[in-house]
Design a protein around this nucleic acid. Structure first.
Lengths: 138, 138
DNA sequence: GGCTGATAGTTAGCATACGAAATATAGGAG
DNA sequence: CTCCTATATTTCGTATGCTAACTATCAGCC
């Protein structure tokens, strides 16, 4: 039964996530980023100038959570929070030059971390695994 | 590339976990438990009288984290923290009568939540998914 | 203009997670 | 017995996540 805690998806997903989070954490630490902050940088690199709300939608991240993450990224010099001229309630988010110049390095780290996680899976398993995980995104 | 954040395992696992966590949260709320607290109860029901350290190993949970969870479970009347006679540094953990009498109900909720999560997966996919998740537990 | 309801972000409160420091107790060497 | 080291748990600091409450601003309507 799934009531055996170690067969429960809540448990399995928690531990899988925590393991991968830990891997990324070690890898991003030298760059001064947390795993989540690194995702924010990657997302922003795809399109700068978006609002916090828009970025939150793309990252499926709560506004309240993202607000704190953006504060820390701004504080540590990765992101610029510029309040929009057209709508003063809204922000326009940009990467700093330092963030841009570190982008390729970050992507390489991220790709490498992903490869290592999937290392023991067959090619087919990797495809299935990602598909099933995506299916779970409500 | 996995550097597209939405193809990154860190992202996929985070969102899958958050989705399932949310499902369990809604389901456990009426019982006055959080998803993690519910896992602790299930684990304890398999063997009572274990120490916090032992329980932490089984749940792959940090001692520091578990300490807080046990405090809240004790506070809310689900768990009894009894300090061990043989080794006063150590705890012996027990379910309360109330916890025991709610066990079957909790297991039913948990099983149902698990079923719903896997609902859209084929039988084969369910097996593969769980296997791959277990493989990720370092 | 001024009121009203909607929207963007922030803040506060709570519950995980985890590393590191602090506490209390065990256990063994001398 | 006493000191030293190892172990069990707790506490502290930081970073997510989420809900709800709060603030500022916008947009439409009279």
């Amino acid at each position: 039964m799934a009531s055996e805690y170690d067969d429960c998806l809540l448990f399995l997903l928690a531990k899988a996530y925590q393991r991968v989070y830990g891997d990324f954490k070690k890898r991003m630490q030298p760059h001064g980023l947390t795993p989540v902050q690194h995702l924010v940088i990657l997302a922003l690199s795809l399109e700068e100038g978006v609002s916090a709300g828009e970025l939150g939608k793309r990252l499926m991240l709560d506004n309240a959570t993202l607000s704190g993450v953006l504060d820390r990224l701004s504080e540590s010099g990765w992101v610029v929070k510029q309040s929009s001229q057209e709508d003063k309630r809204s922000l326009k988010l940009y990467l700093t030059d330092r963030a841009r110049s570190n982008l390729e390095l970050l992507k390489a780290e991220s790709d490498d971390a992903n490869r290592r996680v999937l290392d023991s899976f067959s090619l087919e398993e990797r495809v299935i695994f990602k598909r099933l995980l995506k299916d779970l995104q409500k």
